[in-house]
Simulated assay, not measured.
Amino acid sequence: MAPLYSTKVTAKGGRHGSIRSDDGLLDLSLALPKALGGSGGATNPEQLFAAGYAACFENALLRVSREARHHFTDDQVEVVAEIGISRNEAGNFVLSAALSVTLVGVDQATGEGFVHRAHQVCPYSNAIRGNVDVATTVTVR
Results as ranks from 00 to 15, higher is better:
A118K: 10
D74V: 05
F72W: 02
G17Y: 10
D107V: 07
A90V: 07
A35P: 04
S29Q: 15
V80G: 00
L36K: 14
Q76D: 06
H70A: 00
L26V: 09
A81Y: 01
A90K: 12
A55G: 15
T110A: 14
I85R: 01
H70N: 03
L103T: 07
P3L: 11
V80I: 06
G24F: 08
A109M: 11
L4V: 02
C56S: 14
V115W: 05
S86F: 00
A2H: 07
Y5L: 04
V64T: 06
V132W: 09
F57V: 07
S18K: 09
T102S: 14
L61E: 05
S6R: 14
A81H: 02
L99M: 15
L28V: 04
R117H: 15
I83T: 09
V140C: 11
A31G: 09
T73H: 08
T136P: 04
E58G: 15
A81R: 01
D22S: 15
K34G: 08
T110I: 09
L61H: 06
G13L: 08
L62H: 09
L61A: 06
G84E: 06
A55R: 11
A109V: 14
Y5S: 03
K34F: 07
L99F: 15
E78W: 00
V101P: 02
T43E: 13
L25E: 08
E89G: 01
Y124G: 03
E89P: 01
Q47Y: 01
A51W: 03
Y53C: 12
H71A: 14
D133I: 12
G105I: 02
I128A: 10
V134N: 03
T136K: 08
S65E: 06
S39C: 10
V79Y: 01
F114P: 05
F114A: 04
D75N: 13
K12C: 03
A81C: 05
P123Q: 11
A68Q: 11
N59W: 06
V79H: 02
T139R: 12
A35S: 15
T139E: 12
A11V: 06
L25G: 12
L32W: 02
I83E: 02
T137N: 05
G105P: 07
V140D: 09
A118P: 11
H70V: 07
G14H: 00
G40V: 05
L103P: 10
L62W: 01
T7I: 12
G105S: 07
D133S: 14
S100D: 14
